[in-house]
């Protein structure tokens, strides 16, 4: 895993938040997390990656952040479906950014959305993930990169 790859994934999220009314988003110190207990919050948008790197990248956030994000995007319907769509959109932005940066030697899957704790099937247990926290308003979410070369 390279520093550049981590930047590509986090930039996907930053690009998404640029469109919000309050686009002050901060990136926290990245750290490693053991996959035996995947780092997840209420909602998670997952994309699969294959190519020189293989594994998953996901954006995970609490419901309250997503609800606030919906409102700041001018969407008053904060139903569960809309929240799930939103996190899928964020994951899609990560996916799009990764596609344009990594080129044709990579495959990036269509995002899937999960609620609650991620199952063991989502992440390779033997690996550690890079967790990149992000802070928006008073909330925190994270981009989690779990790829092996």
């Amino acid at each position: 895993m390279s520093e550049k790859a981590l930047e590509v994934f986090i930039d996907g999220v930053l690009n998404y938040f640029k469109h919000t009314s309050d686009n002050k988003i901060k990136v926290g110190a990245p750290y490693l997390h053991n996959n035996t207990e995947p780092a997840t919050l209420d909602y998670t948008g997952i994309i699969g990656v294959s190519g020189s790197y293989k594994g998953v990248v996901y954006f995970t956030a609490p419901k309250v952040l997503l609800t606030h994000l919906l409102l700041s995007l001018g969407e008053s319907d904060t139903s569960m479906e809309n929240i799930a769509d939103l996190i899928g959109e964020v994951a899609n932005t990560i996916s799009g950014n990764a596609r344009s940066e990594f080129g044709q030697n990579f495959m990036i899957s269509v995002p899937t959305v999960a609620r609650g704790r991620l199952s063991e099937a989502h992440v390779p247990q033997a690996l550690r993930s890079y967790v990149i926290p992000i802070y928006w308003k008073s909330y925190n979410a994270a981009v989690v990169v779990c790829l092996e070369q």
Binding site: M1, E3, E7, I10, K26, V27, P30, L32
Partner: peptide
């Protein structure tokens, strides 16, 4: 200093592990 500045550190940390 932003968290992005430490991407290189965490990548090296994984390499050390």
């Amino acid at each position: 200093r932003s968290g992005k500045d430490l991407f290189g550190v965490v990548v090296l940390l994984e390499s050390l592990y």
